[in-house]
Each structure stands twice: as structure tokens, then as C-alpha cells.
Design a protein around this nucleic acid. Sequence first.
RNA 1: GCGCCCGUAGCUCAGUUGGAUAGAGCGUCUGGCUACGAACCAGAAGGUCAGGUGUUCGAAUCACCUCGGGCGCACCA
Length: 643
Amino acid sequence: MFHSIQKQVSSAFRAHIGARYGIDVAVAIEEPRQSEFGEMAVPAAFQLAKQLRQAPRKIAQELAGEIGPIAGVGAMEVAGNGYLNIRLDRGAYGLALLEGEAAAPSASSGKLIVEHTNINPNKAAHVGHLRNATLGDTFVRMLRARGETVEAQNYIDNTGVQVADVVVGFHYLEGKGPAEVRLMLADPAVRFDYYCWDLYAHTTAYYQDHAEALDWRAETLHAIEAGSGELAELGDIVADAIVRAHLATMLRLDVEYDVLPRESEILHLHFWAAAFELLKERKAIYLETEGKNAGCWVMPGLSEEGKVIVRSGGTVTYVGKDIAYQLWKFGLLGKDFYYRPFQRYADGRVLWVTSDTPNQEPAPEFGHATRVYNVIDARQSYLQDVVCAGLRALGYERQAEESVHFSYEMVALSHRCCADLGISLSDEDRERPYVEVSGRKGRGVKADDLMDTLISKALDEVAARHPDYPPEERKRVAEQIAIGALRYFLLKFTRTSVIAFDLQEALSFEGETGPYLQYAAVRARNILRKLEERGEQLPDFAAELKGEAMGRQLASEDAWQMLLSASKADAALEKAVAAGEPAHVAKYAFSLAQAFNNFYHQYPVLQEPNREKKVFLLWMTDFFRRQLERTAAILGIRIPEYM
RNA sequence: GCGCCCGUAGCUCAGUUGGAUAGAGCGUCUGGCUACGAACCAGAAGGUCAGGUGUUCGAAUCACCUCGGGCGCACCA
């Protein structure tokens, strides 16, 4: 509601200024810091002052006097040395909220692809991966809340070096073949993704002392690329099992996907070969004949020596495959995958995976995006630049523009966190402000361990408050609280901020946290539930709250400010999408919860003796509830039945 | 060396396209539970927005420089 009035005010000013002064300006609408200044401030007079060679205050007075009535605006006044402060018509505003807004027009940006998670399928997920998935999933929810068509992709690098290293571990270091590994998978006592976590660290450590073992890796990589033999079979088993483990981990956080494009299909369906031909044909890459890159196909320009796309041995680098994949996302490759169902979510939606053979079941159309967001950490920005440069070199300027590197800084570990987890640090580590997570060293906080810890803490809190509620119900509530805490914690930082992960901070359920948000929503629901328990009915708000009554109740400054902040969800979402910043939604959600808790303490709704006021307060409660629920849903945070 | 990011209260972080008196949480201190459940609320203390120069009506925000920290610049991804 607030957002739509903002837009109306802005366009009214723009039209008036155009007609009156013959100047076309995009009129900014600000929100004054002090609420006494009204709800909106228009600094347009400052913008015009220079061109008109007049004092801003004088222009502001002219504007205020001449612009005429704007729907929803109650009063307009000149303030400071040229601000135009706008006060809304409170009664009309409240009434409009009560009647409900017209559904947001569905945005028509075409299909948007958001690629996120993308964890190497060779070991358990850690907190860093959770930041990626939570950011990506929340951004998907934000876009969908605006009516966009979004496809969530999770790319699976199942033929890369990291998978090969675990295969090397099984085959060469532990002497295990496919049969033995399958037995492990069938053994409920073995936590396979955790086992691989250790095995991967063990294997990379082994390379340190045995350089000759790197030949095993090369051999394994070739076998996996060729897709035949025992090593390739091991690679399949490992990657498939770990992907399933990752999906299960992400499902705990309510993160779901539409399709899993796999690198093996990019190879087997010759996506790379097609892209390679294009790149050669359009001279985007060349065969280096001298220097350290002799024998490689190289893309020039980005760094001094260029970026190797095809190694001298003839194998493709990850970036090469990524260029082919990016072309496919835009429908530019002239090829498509086959698809088969991989699993089914609780609501019946199918998660598809790419396949190299045709399948009976008809799949939806994937790819063909107008814009692509790649959620990848900031350390890989160079590689994302290479991918874009590849598109440009092929003449796909527009698609390069529409390829967004949705970058974020890494998650590291705080020193206190390392101490809590018993991670030993070198002297060098100790001097740094935080400690980098390292899959190779097996150093990090596993995602499932973190969630388990959170759940057990939440369970203690729930049990203390509700000793006689059924245990399985308490478990469900605790899970929702734990996940709410985790998602909020990962989302409250802006993308450019490095998170020095601190277990004690993440475990907090007080202050600016997910549970604070959940608690506010639970309280709002409790009021409405208690009302019915007392045998009363939720009033017919539209019938009982006419314009005058609404105006009377909103004359109270406190009530007005509370309603105002509760009604800014659209404006907040709009800004957050424009900035590509889920943290803005999180911050808004927190301020919304704060406003409600304020309201909760100030007004004992059910005790209110005055009928009109009670109806108004109940309506406010219900409005807050809806806004809290909606905003929490965008953040992927569930509201528990009780807390 | 080149490129990107960061530097705001004791700590962790927000701060809209440059706007009016720089905010929040945690921590510290003071108060508030007879249940619309305190996982909450009210109040207090706490700032040279790293430093400098510039741009202008106006700078935490933009430009340039300096200092401090992080991350990249692989035939790994």
C-alpha cells in the first residue's frame, strides 16, 4: 500500500513539474527520519533549484501550492530549506488496507533462472554452503513474491576433481570397490557424507607427501570423463549418494529446486563440443603455441596470460563447461538435456535431473531464461567474468548483460568458534581476524551438525516452557525455531560482509533473530485464538470500521506509526529485489516484529472495553499477523504453533 | 604488481537513487511478569562514520590519495 502511494506521488510530481516547468525529472520519494515530518518527503525542489536558478524553498512553495490534490495525500507542507513533507490521509489509508490491495501485477520479465547451492558432491555440506543456499533460496522467494517466473537450479559438478579425490581415497587408499562402497551406503551406522568429509581431507593430505599419487587423480578424472570402468562407477556412486545427502540437508532448511543440471550430461551430450565449435568459429579462443600455456586453447584478455579453457591434454576446464552451461541457460546452445524425475517433494512437485538418454515421462521446459542469477561466492568473480567474456566474444552482448553474478562474501570461523569446536590453529591462523573454512583440511562446521545443535537447544527451551505438550509436537516446534534462527542469522548480513561464524551468536534466540520474528507472529495468533476460546467472534472489520472510525483510531500517533510500519512490506520487498539484497527483507521483518511487540505491550486487545477501539485493535492484530507471516515466508521461516 | 571487497558505539552489523538531529542487536547499568505466556517491553550510558583533500545548497554515502585488513589474478572448482 505504502509503495503504491509512493509511486502515485512520484508520478504526480513528475507530471506536474513537466507541465509547469518543462523539465522531466525522476522524482525521488524519501521517508523522513523524524516521524513528525510526515510519512513522505519530496526533495524535488533541490533538484530543480539549479536549473531554475531559484531558491529551493521558493520552488517548494510553488509546488505545494499548485500541484493540487493527490489521492491518499492528506496534507503537504514546506519544511527546512526546501523539503516538501507529505502527510497521508490516515483514515483513507487504513480503509484501503482493510479493503485489501489489488493483487500485485505479475511482473513480466520472462523467465528468471537462479542457480544456487552447487556443492561439490564429494562430502557433507558446511556453513559456507548454507549461506549460498539460503541466499539463493530467499532470493527465489523474493522474486516469486513479486510475481516473477523463477527456475531454481542446483548445478552438480559430478565429474570434477573433488569427486575424483574421494574416489582415489576409496580405491587406492582404502582398497574399496563399488561393492564395498554400496555396502557402506546400505549400512545405517555409516554417515556416508561425513565419512567422505574425512576421506577427502585424508586424500588431499596424502597428496602433500606423495606427489606421485596425483597420477591416480589424473587417471580417475579420465575414467570419470570417459564414463566407463570401476573408477567411473565409484564416481557415480559417490556423487549420487552425496547429492541425495545434500538435498536432504537443504530440505531441512526448506530449500527446494526445480532441476539439477549435471556436468556429466554436459560432457556426454557434447554440450562442450558444441560450445567449443562456436568459440573456435568466432575466434573467441585460440590455440597457444608458446609459453607456459603452449598446447592449450586460451581465452585472451582477462589476465596477462589469458585463461586456459582446454588443457594441453585435451580435457576441458570447469570454466569451459560453465560457458556451455551458461549458453544453455539462455537457450543459445542449440542443444538440450534429457530429463528424468530425481525425487518428489512433499507437495508432489517433481525435482528433475538431467539425463543423457530420452525418458518416457514428459519434462517441463527448462532453460531459455531472459536473465540468469548465479549465486556464487565473491572469490569466484574472476571465473564469472570469464564466462561473461565468453558470451560477449560470441556476440551475445545482451545475455552477458543479463548474466548476474549474485556474489557474496565467504563464511569463515571466529576464533571463539574454533575454540568452542576444538579446532586447533596454527600461529598464522591466530594472527588473522578470522579462520577460513577448508574442505581440503576438513576444517569447518558441518551443516547437519549445526542444525542438530540448534534443534537440541531449541528443544530445551520449548520443553522448559511447555512440559506437558506431546514430545513429537515439541520436536516439530523446536525444528522450526532452529531453522528460523539459522536462516535469519545467515540472511541478516549483507552480501558484501564476511561472516565470521560464531556458534554462540548463531545459537542466540533473542534480539535480532529468527525466533524474535516467530515469537511476534505466534503472539498475534494467540490473541486471535484466545478471542475464540472466550467465545467471541472475529468481527466483520469492513462492516464495523468505517472511514470515520478508522480516522478516529489512527489519530493516535502510536497506532498510526505501528500501522504504517506494518504496511511497508511491498516497499521493502521492492527495494530488496532492486538491490539484490535479501538482508533488507530480513531487516524489515525484524522492524515489523518490533513494531508488533510494541503494540502488544501497549494495547491489551482483549481487555479493551470500547467496542470501536477493540475492533480496531483486533484488525491491527490480524493485519500484523498477515504481514508477519507473509514476510517470514519470503525469508523461508515458518511460524510454529506455539513457542 | 593488477583487480574486487571491507573499515561506522566495547563486540557483531544496518544505514535507501548524496538529504533534515548517524541506527539496531548483543554486552553493561536501571526498571517492568497475576497468562492476549518475559524467547518480551521501557529507560540510560556509549560515535573524530579509519585519515586527508576535493565535488555541492547538502557527504557515512560520490571522486582522488594515504593507512589498515580480507579475497582473487591455476592446465582446482
